[in-house]
Each structure stands twice: as C-alpha cells, then as structure tokens.
C-alpha cells in the first residue's frame, strides 16, 4: 500500500525575516499573505504546489518549503 499523501510544509522563520514582502508576489498560487505585523504567513497552505519560488525569492532564506515522500511500494495504479 502507498502511504498517506501529504501537503508540503511551509515554514517561515520570523527571527530571520526582514519583512520585505517579496514572498507574497512570488507565489503563483496566492498562498502567502502579509500580516498586520508585517510578517508573511501561509494563508492557503493547501494550494502550495511546492514550486519553491517564494523560498528562492526570499533575500534572507527565511522560508523553507518541504515536500514529503509518501509512496512506499509498488502498487497497481488506477
């Protein structure tokens, strides 16, 4: 059996973030928003397709996208 499919994980390191706002327009899927405190947060995590554009556009490496292996072994596909 295959494992359970999993969303990508989006981590934002506030202690590193300089609140430049570059990650919001970097996202093609409109996942990121800038909060009232100026820090970004992932508002629509379920739409993240792990393209890494926000991570790559962040000037200070304050974002980490993680994708997860879940496929465990061969199985007949539909």
């Amino acid at each position: 059996m295959a494992g359970q499919p999993r969303y990508p994980t989006i981590e934002i390191y506030k202690e590193v973030c300089i609140r430049c706002g570059a990650c919001d327009p970097a996202c093609p899927e409109d996942v990121m928003r800038i909060g009232a405190d100026g820090y970004p947060f992932a508002k629509y995590t379920e739409d993240c397709q792990a393209c890494f554009l926000c991570e790559w556009d962040c000037p200070v490496n304050a974002i980490k996208i993680s994708v997860h292996k879940w496929w465990e072994e061969d199985q007949p596909a539909a």
């Binding site: 499919p5 999993r6 969303y7 093609p28 899927e29 397709q49 393209c51």
Partner: peptide
Amino acid sequence: YKRPGQNFAGMPLD
C-alpha cells in the same frame, strides 16, 4: 489533480 491532502498537482494549478 491536486486533491485535499496531496502535495502534487498537474502543471500549475492556475
């Protein structure tokens, strides 16, 4: 094809 819980889609969802 991205469905709830999956971390893959087709080409971009949009």
